[in-house]
């Protein structure tokens, strides 16, 4: 049982970080970022390139991932989403654009990094052994989990106490009111998108050390992120964190309890999600109808 809980907490921390970026972008711009999974994959590949191929320290790789994705995110917002949002008459258009960007990033990843599964050398060796093998956890997983939690805390503090964070929260709450108070929508939308993409990149950089990275991981990651956001409620930061940890726990518990019945964990999670949404369509902490 301790093992399952530890796995769940570890997964939950990663998932929460992914969902945070997605929900931030959604809250600010009402855009469902289909390309979030692909951004995560790019983050993983950048860390792989810097850390495993060039041979610089892992922290440099992680920082490189964060910076690369922040730039990519900012550019995507400025040159793609902003004009389309201004011009189109229905909100669905941004979804098509996001799908196009997801395919585009997939193509870039394929051309630049290839389609092979890539892994990096372990950052720390050894295994943490608690209470005579009732719980076993490799040290690198523990480190990655703590780094993820630290990133979440830094993110929350930033959103809560910095001027930028306050502006972004105001925008998410009420766009018109925020504009009237002198918040520059264009500027903070760009910062928010860059920040959301950066979070995806950081998770990619963290997880490449444990699971490795390959081209096909983008889509499923986006889908998991959508599920977390739905559990917690779209556009709400606390909801994304809750959703991430809940999905992580459910996955860990499901994998151990339902293993006897075959690979039905995600089926069970989906069915429970449907029942949950039938009772509470806006998720745990979301506003009704997003």
């Amino acid at each position: 049982m301790e093992q399952v809980l530890a796995n769940g907490a570890y997964l939950g921390a990663q998932y929460a970080l992914i969902a945070l970026g997605l929900t931030l972008i959604f809250a600010l711009m009402n855009v469902l970022n289909f390309a979030h999974g692909q951004m995560y994959v790019i983050g993983g590949f950048v860390t792989y390139t810097v850390y495993a191929q060039i041979g610089l320290p892992f922290v440099v790789g992680l920082a490189a991932s964060a910076v690369t994705l922040a730039i990519v995110g900012a550019l995507i917002e400025k040159f793609l989403f902003r004009p389309v949002i201004k011009k189109s008459v229905r909100e669905e258009s941004t979804m098509l654009l996001a799908a196009g960007i997801a395919f585009f990033l997939d193509a870039i990843i394929l051309l630049v990094f290839g389609e092979k599964q890539r892994g990096v050398p372990k950052i720390i060796n050894g295994v943490f052994n608690y209470n005579d093998f009732t719980m076993v956890m490799p040290y690198d997983k523990i480190l990655v989990g703590f780094l993820a939690i630290a990133s979440i805390i830094i993110f929350i503090l930033y959103m809560q106490y910095s001027k930028t964070g306050r502006a972004m929260r105001a925008l998410a709450q009420d766009k018109v009111a925020a504009q009237l108070m002198g918040v520059d929508v264009d500027k903070y939308s760009m910062i928010g998108f860059a920040l959301g993409a950066m979070l995806a990149g950081v998770v990619g950089g963290l997880l490449v050390t444990v699971t490795g990275i390959n081209l096909g991981m983008g889509g499923p990651t986006s889908i998991k992120a959508f599920m977390m956001v739905m559990i917690g409620g779209a556009g709400v930061i606390s909801g994304a964190i809750a959703g991430g940890f809940i999905l992580g726990m459910m996955e860990a518990v499901g994998l151990s309890v339902l293993a006897a019945y075959g690979d039905i964990t995600y089926l069970a999670i989906f069915v429970s999600l449907m029942v949950f949404l039938a009772i509470r369509p806006q998720g745990l902490m979301g506003k009704p109808w997003g």
């Binding site: 009402n30 739905m230 690979d263 089926l267 029942v275 997003g290």
Partner: peptide, 24 residues
């Protein structure tokens, strides 16, 4: 019956998840 109560992005997300669940 349950999911059509959702709107906009919520419905889009859950139908996308549905595709993946059908595969699983």
């Amino acid at each position: 019956l349950p999911i059509l109560r959702l709107r906009g992005v919520y419905f889009a997300m859950i139908t996308l998840v549905l595709t993946e669940v059908a595969r699983l």
